[in-house]
Design a protein around this nucleic acid. Structure first.
Lengths: 210, 210
DNA sequence: GTCTATAGATAGATAGAC
DNA sequence: GTCTATCTATCTATAGAC
């Protein structure tokens, strides 16, 4: 990687950091230049405008979470149940959002109120990622692992929304991401209502069979 | 209400509108003055600073949703099941967020990235509202309507987070808030997994008994 | 209560030297 | 590639007339 490329990357990293911490509103080019150790004018050698810089950060944000989730599912054995697939997808999405750098959370946290011109360029990859989840849930339903009367569209919006909101409350000292993913998966598939359980099933631990 | 009070209120309304639509970042006092039909300097007769104005909008945002939810639950018969209470609370929260003016959604959408000084003043009432949900779920569990091994803290964060994210996808032409609340409630209590159903229970429609 | 006028700070962006 | 210097626009806020 050439030096120029490295500097460019450091600027993007600084932008992701600041977007995630302070938000687009309170992130000036001055802040980014200070973070990288440059003058603001020097940023314009690497990017034509602030918008172009931010656009790239936002794009990488979804790209990264999409790739993380896809990679995690691709690594599963073909025999894996859909419930297990959903659990792994939840864990990968949460991990990408909460543990793997600032790009993903920078996107999720800023997108809702980002100006129109920046939002547009991001919509395409967002739709692709949404379709990926839609397909996963559809396959699960076809396989009989999701009840046939369930509205998958609402489940997807509800589930992804709840995960995206986790940036607001996640505390790594309280619960691990894997533990959270397990519990969310149980909640989504089994519900929180009282069970008329078979005595053989303790209910406490996640069940990976089937 | 005096004329001064009315103008003050119109400024707050304009601020809630703009915060919800454009976000704090892109809301200038010029925008608010234009919306109300004043000069920017005139706003300072009603508020000491922009921060003070925004703070008041943010406070009302949580105050309103809190009151809406509490009022809805208070209106239920004492014999109402906790499942029914949760369903009503979900519907009230969503309705307050998506239908009843801009204050609530202005808060939810801006709070995550709002500057520190504005965030602080909002935390107290937010905690109160969080405690209200915590109590509701605890009571439901004590009454046996939520399985004893369920982590209520995660359920609350997950559920409230998912609802708060609904501002990003809600479309009143596609589904009513009551319908969404019903489905969310079923999803949370019963899960989306396949049921070994008793033949007497169709499963499609919400069940209010118990 | 609302206005005009303006201060003072900071934003994104450009020009040109090195 | 990065710098210094600077332009123009816009922001919050204040002063003082009406």
């Amino acid at each position: 990687m050439r030096r120029s490329e490295q500097t460019r990357r450091r600027i993007l990293d600084a932008a992701a950091l600041w977007l995630n911490k302070k938000g687009l509103a309170e992130t000036s080019l001055q802040d980014l230049a200070d973070e990288v150790g440059l003058q603001t004018a020097s940023l314009y050698y690497h990017f034509p405008s602030k918008d172009a810089l931010i656009e790239e950060v936002l794009h990488k944000g979804i790209e990264i979470v999409y790739e993380d989730v896809r990679r995690a599912l691709d690594a599963l054995e073909p025999s894996a149940s859909y419930r297990e697939r959903v659990r792994v997808a939840i864990a990968a999405h949460l991990s990408s959002l909460l543990e793997h750098g600032d790009y993903t959370s920078a996107n999720i946290r800023n997108f809702p109120l980002v100006p129109e011109n920046l939002r547009e360029k991001n919509l395409s990859i967002r739709r692709q990622y949404g379709d990926y989840w839609r397909q996963l849930l559809q396959d699960a339903q076809k396989a009989g692992e999701v009840a046939p009367n369930v509205d998958l569209s609402l489940v997807r919006l509800f589930l992804v929304g709840a995960m995206n909101w986790s940036t607001e409350w996640f505390n790594p000292r309280k619960k691990s991401i894997d533990a959270i993913a397990d519990m969310i998966c149980s909640m989504i598939f089994d519900g929180i209502g009282p069970k008329e359980q078979r005595p053989s099933d303790g209910g406490q631990k996640r069940v990976t069979r089937r």
